[in-house]
Amino acid sequence: MRQFENEQLTVFQSVLYQTTSAVIKTKEALIVTDPNWLPNEIAEIKGYIESIIEDRRLYIIYTHSDYDHIIAAGAFPNATTIASEAFVKRINKEEVLEQIRQFDAQYYIERGYPIIYPHIDIIIKEDGQTLELQDITCSFYLSPGHTGDGLFTVVEPFGILLAGDYLSNVEFPFIEDYEAYFATIQKVQTIISDKEIEVMVPGHGTTTNNLDEIQKRIDESLLYLNNLANDSIDESQLRKLYPFYKGLQEMHELNKKAVHK
């Protein structure tokens, strides 16, 4: 379904884990993030793209390499792809593809495109790297912590922040590397301060154009990280903040292990 729309941005939301896929329309390009999950949802995204693409060039930004975020890579063979250098250098790519195959086998899902790990055309190696198009500038920032290959994108002058699996209102931080995650949240605070951000798209949960809400999510992430490190998490508070906490308890236990590594 379509979760959010304005003149430049349309955000699609899957029924699974409220996973989002953003489509940004500019004079020269369509920029898409992480098209996902189910075949009918991907068909809806493809249909929308085909209805507005005209002579625009299609770009796909992969915010990171978790299997749910690359699951439809094979559905867009003509797109120009963008991801971090760590995404390209991921060693266990076959493991990610096997997760997709297992998911599809479990639910008897058939897809009309190949399951592939995406080849990347534009590799982001450092913070501040840019892609200049006719009417926009995309600035990229490495965002490790959730995974080692995360990527933020700021699209100017529209003020769009594509945050990947950070700043969700339905998930607390899912942590692979605690110190890297903490540094990434501090980095996004700097981005919010330095750039004129008007709307933020998380990888899971609700898109927001409310700056107070964006700051609230930053503060909640920092609070969770600090409390996790101090072993002072109030799980009753987590239940109030995150409506699907019952399904997230296993991840909270994994986070405890991550912080003590």
Rank of each mutant, 00 (worst) to 15 (best):
F87L: 07
R217M: 13
V11R: 06
F182D: 15
R56A: 09
I192F: 10
D68Y: 15
T207W: 04
H64F: 01
S221C: 14
I31M: 07
L161C: 00
L222F: 09
S232R: 11
D149W: 12
K27Q: 12
P77L: 09
L248S: 11
F87V: 01
A22H: 02
K240E: 15
P114S: 11
F172G: 07
Y17K: 07
I120N: 04
E196L: 07
H260I: 12
I70Y: 10
P157W: 00
V155T: 00
E156F: 01
I197V: 15
I42N: 08
I49T: 01
D135L: 06
E253N: 10
D219A: 10
V15S: 07
G74D: 07
Q237Y: 08
I175S: 02
I61T: 04
T137S: 07
I91Y: 15
E132Q: 13
D231A: 11
F182R: 06
S236N: 14
N209M: 04
I192K: 13
H64T: 09
S232V: 05
E7G: 03
F174A: 11
I233T: 11
H119E: 15
E220K: 12
E44C: 05
V259R: 14
K46M: 06
F158N: 03
I61F: 01
I109W: 00
Y17Q: 07
K46P: 05
K187A: 06
I191E: 08
F4W: 05
E253T: 09
V15N: 02
S221P: 08
T207G: 04
T190A: 12
A229G: 07
V155W: 00
L131C: 02
I218R: 05
P114T: 11
N210D: 14
Q3K: 06
T63N: 11
Y117T: 04
I116K: 11
E94D: 14
P118T: 14
Q18I: 02
Y224A: 10
L238H: 11
V170T: 15
T63Q: 11
Y59A: 01
K240A: 06
A43W: 04
V32F: 03
L254M: 13
T184S: 14
I160R: 00
H64N: 15
Q134N: 06
S168K: 08
T20D: 01
E54A: 10
V188N: 04
H119K: 12
F12K: 08
I49H: 01
L167V: 09
Y59I: 01
S232W: 02
F158W: 11
K27G: 09
M251I: 13
F172R: 00
V201F: 06
Y242S: 15
E196P: 05
D149N: 14
E94R: 13
A180T: 07
I53H: 01
Y62V: 02
K257M: 14
E220D: 08
S236I: 07
R101T: 03
E220F: 07
K93W: 04
R90E: 14
Y62T: 13
K256Q: 15
H69D: 03
V11Q: 09
T184W: 09
I120M: 06
G128Y: 02
T80Y: 01
S232I: 08
E44M: 10
I100G: 10
E50M: 10
Q102M: 08
A229R: 10
E94S: 14
